[in-house]
Nucleic acid binder design. Structure first.
Lengths: 211, 211
DNA sequence: CATTGGTTTAACAAAATTGTTAAACAATGA
DNA sequence: TCATTGTTTAACAATTTTGTTAAACCAATG
């Protein structure tokens, strides 16, 4: 919110509200988030939320779309870059984990909302080039298999493993910290070391059999 | 609900309500679940829910505890069994994936509720022997490392990978099906084939270096 | 310095959701 | 068959949450 009032629509206020909404929705999900929470987070009162965004649903849509971009955005560009497969995988894992460190609550948010409103995904998904990404990835694997440079393996298991290994630790973080007794500050450095671990696992999966 | 009314408290009705509550809470989470939804699912009306369980919170607690047992239950017994490490890992993965096939919505439910109410976990967790499980697992890995039968590797990464590879596909299922275009009926058989894939990955992680 | 126009708010209204109660009901046993 | 007792419900009350509005406010401009 701007302390100094303007005669033109206040982009800053709108943006500040949207960012507050993003924080609250992303942490709590649609159903548990209260308009009051968002107003407080933005430092204003509820009526103003409706002035800028007519309803809770409309605000949520904006937040969902932004988070969707974060979630899928990191994939896109990397696998197009012309580089050896192993480097592309290492780059992908690094970018993905960096994105997750910057947006740790996004995966649980996205997957929860999708599970609970599966129809939403259909429409939103079409705006995102996710399927293209999948196809590119799968077909580069198949090409390498033909050449015999990697092992015969279902590409779907490779992709599923890659995503699982990167994303799950962030979804399971609170449980993991409690169970392990690890101090929260240490989590980031664990994820940094995890970049190499994950990439190594995936490349090991692909390595031609030898014994 | 029982069609025939009794003069003694009706265990069946109570149980039927609890099962209905479990289905609804597990699919929608606490905040999005409506008492009305649960009543409808159980084939009765709302007042009866309060007759058996005073409040939404109390019903939820029962459901949460049951789901918590499912979530952690499969781990416990297996790693105690005296068998070679590789067999114990294969058994663990098989049991875990079987549990998930029977309760596909449980992980997202548990992790969502824990994220949004981290305090709850502290108290509930103490009733579950999860930490013990972790300790057993970690120390058996360390023992093998001492003996040189497995590679030097952070046990925490092994455990984290194991859980990620098993659990994440169920959390990401709706997204995954949409993105891949795979028909839902095929998901179960994918998970069956995944048992071997996951166990192989973990054992590969542990195999002494050789190249 | 008064008017103008966007901005902000407090107070209010409407809707959705949870929780309560008094009375009807159905099976059992006297 | 009638009274008893646990079961079930419809109607109601309370609370929580979302959405609306009229009026106050403030900066810019003439």
């Amino acid at each position: 919110m701007s302390k100094t009032q303007n005669t033109t629509p206040d982009r800053n206020t709108e943006e500040a509200i949207l960012q507050a909404a993003k924080r609250v929705f992303t942490r709590k999900g649609f159903a548990a988030a209260r308009m009051e929470d968002i107003a407080t987070e933005a430092g204003i009162n509820r009526a103003l939320l409706h002035y800028y965004f007519r309803s809770k649903e409309k605000m949520f849509e904006r937040v969902f779309e932004e988070n969707m971009s974060h979630f899928y955005g990191s994939f896109i560009s990397i696998l197009n870059a012309p580089a050896p497969l192993d480097m592309r995988i290492r780059n992908l894992v690094n970018a993905e984990i960096d994105m997750l460190l910057a947006n740790p609550d996004v995966p649980l948010f996205i997957l929860t909302e999708i599970s609970r409103n599966p129809d939403m995904i259909k429409s939103k998904m079409e705006k995102m080039p996710v399927r293209e990404f999948m196809m590119i990835f799968v077909s580069s694997l198949r090409t390498e298999m033909q050449k015999g440079t990697i092992r015969q393996i279902e590409p779907v298991h490779v992709l599923m493993s890659l995503m699982s290994l990167c994303i799950f630790p962030f979804i399971g973080k609170p449980m993991f910290l409690t169970v392990s007794g690890m101090p929260p500050e240490q989590f980031e450095s664990l994820m940094q070391s995890r970049k190499k671990v994950v990439a190594d696992i995936i490349l090991q999966m692909l390595k031609p059999e030898q014994a």
